[in-house]
Design a protein around this nucleic acid. Structure first.
Lengths: 204, 204, 204, 204
DNA sequence: CATGAATGAGTCTTCATTCAT
DNA sequence: CATGAATGAAGACTCATTCAT
């Protein structure tokens, strides 16, 4: 039986594993990590609480795998965008669009990330959250600064504030976004970009 | 509207009470409500866990009082704005400014609200969170719609999306805002409004 | 006398069986019976925990077989000595020497016996430990008493105390003895006997 | 209320604390540390399992305190003996006597020590067991060597073997010793010393 | 013979809460 | 007002064991 070395600890059919993680992510997102009992996840999976430990070695390691899988995929997308050599405005557009696509694909993980990452980042095990966040900041902040230098973004903005503004604006969407709810990620991205770039007020 | 709860069985100096609540809010905000133990709060207050129960009848009732106090004050400010008969744009400006002022005054409570309100709203005791949220939505959404009708806001926007955009944009700030950190609430409000209303891109 | 247990439901090559038992004994001795997980033994054997149940019907039955096998062999040796019609001093010498030989052959089993027998003896299944212990006591105590009567052992000793002294003195050696470590069992026996019989002090 | 700084974590009446530890020691000694459930100890103390955690922060910390308290007292006694400037034979006599006194006072702790110290010593928290053991070895071994040099102990002995012989001989007694059982520690010590020093055989 | 997956009972531990003093 | 001690319910996790494949 193929034992993928990628799999941590005991091997379990990669399919089952992913299925369980997806389930867990859903529950974590809905009720919060702390408030979610292992039993709740097991119930949802139709097994007993203890049985989950055949697949994962702790509740925390499920969380870990959910978040790191999400971040891996996120950075794959981001890196492609950042390597494309686009201008600042196009880069922002592409990043925002990519972000909404990730929200679409990993809604639960994103919601968990939003809610728990600050606390988690303090633990050594989740150091990578901090690392990712710093890369994130450099990417966005750098692009905004290039844009200001370029003259395509307004020069009178506090760039750090603008960074937070854009960042939050996008990611909080995960808290209300429901996939298959009329809007495709691309549509939402377009609308958001329109607001972020040009504002909601009518031009004078 | 936050319900007036029966005041704690035994009376305690209102000063001490407020002090304890403020402390609790700080800890809840820093570590999350669930993750905060009553003992932690008591430690911070220099007393034993059991002693807190002289002042409050439960951990939940502390949370309740923190949130309802905050919402009471928030609505006082909002109601003044909404009753002032301003135009849509000025109303938005005033609401955003008022919001940042509340974040300044009740940072901890706002952070807690952001993180926990969704779960809490499910409990009967915290129904007022839902009520408040609905009033909130009516106020903002109505103003935006009036603005579109007026012609001062762009007609091509999805108003619900715009509502979420503005709402989130403002309140998430509580997660990084530190009072006394160089920016007054009014300054931040001005910058945010500039971005929200006119966008970050340079006008064509 | 160790009871002949029903051999495991399904047959398994006696070689493999002994190998597994030897492995299990080693792990039990090293970490304690309770602290040893079935999985640990299986790991050591290069199989999964569940697979052990093809060979044995429980963790306890492995322990049982380890101990009873050891005691069977021990008594074979002891009985030969006791039937040889030696004098008290020579009997003691032969028993001690035989004991060190058993420690050499069954180090792990002896260590387990030392550590766990008291608790185990309470269970019906391990009654034979008590039985063996009583025979043991009769053999040693009787020999010592004969020796005192004979005049070859000192008359001023508390015989029960002397019994415990000799008994413990010998068997605890299993806790530090490492086979192939410079001393043959016979050498150690000779040294121990020299100390037990003549003391460590220089004769006046 | 006097809060002795000597007390770890939460203060609890030193009396109660000692009482609980003594109880726990008894149960650990009787059933083994691993096999003893926290609930069992609590039962014995007439409280619920969770309540123990008001006094101690873990099962392990109870064990720790039991063992370290014992070792502290043991070394107090030993150090007095070792500092007294006695000859080798008198030192051995004094150490053995002191040991039986400690067995009398701390029977449970000694039994636990005998059974668990080897495993425990591997954990960093119990490093002091190893340290103590090394000091122990130096004290006994050194005395024996001095005695051999002096000519009061036999020159033909393997000193390391003799060390183990004496050491084990004494301490294993904890496994069968019952205080108030006819023998005072001093009596037992005298008998043991007589055997260890002069042997059980009649002088040629 | 062995694996993979699960069971179910039990363990340690945490924590909000109570209450006599 | 506060302490000290305890309760009791719940939670994460472990592990021997089972069994279909």
């Amino acid at each position: 039986m193929p034992q993928r070395k990628t799999q941590p600890q005991r091997a379990s059919a990669p399919g089952r594993r992913r299925e369980l993680l997806s389930l867990a992510a859903e529950v974590f997102a809905a009720h919060g990590y702390d408030a979610t009992t292992v039993r709740r996840i097991a119930d949802e999976a139709g097994m007993l609480a203890g049985s989950l430990y055949y697949h994962f070695d702790s509740k925390e390691s499920m969380l870990d795998e959910i978040l790191s899988t999400f971040l891996d995929e996120l950075w794959e997308g981001y890196d492609t965008v950042l390597a494309a050599g686009l201008g600042p405005r196009e880069t922002i557009e592409a990043l925002v669009t990519e972000s909404f696509r990730e929200i679409d694909r990993h809604r639960a993980a994103v919601a968990i990330y939003q809610k728990e990452s600050r606390q988690l980042a303090a633990q050594p095990r989740f150091r990578y959250l901090t690392v990712s966040q710093e890369r994130f900041e450099r990417a966005w902040l750098g692009t905004l600064e290039r844009g200001v230098a370029d003259g395509c973004f307004r020069a009178d903005l506090d760039v750090r504030l603008a960074y937070r503004f854009v960042r939050d604006t996008v990611w909080v969407a995960a808290s209300w976004y429901r996939p298959g709810g009329g809007h495709t990620p691309e549509e939402i991205a377009r609308q958001y970009l329109s607001m972020v770039l040009d504002g909601i007020a009518v031009r004078a």
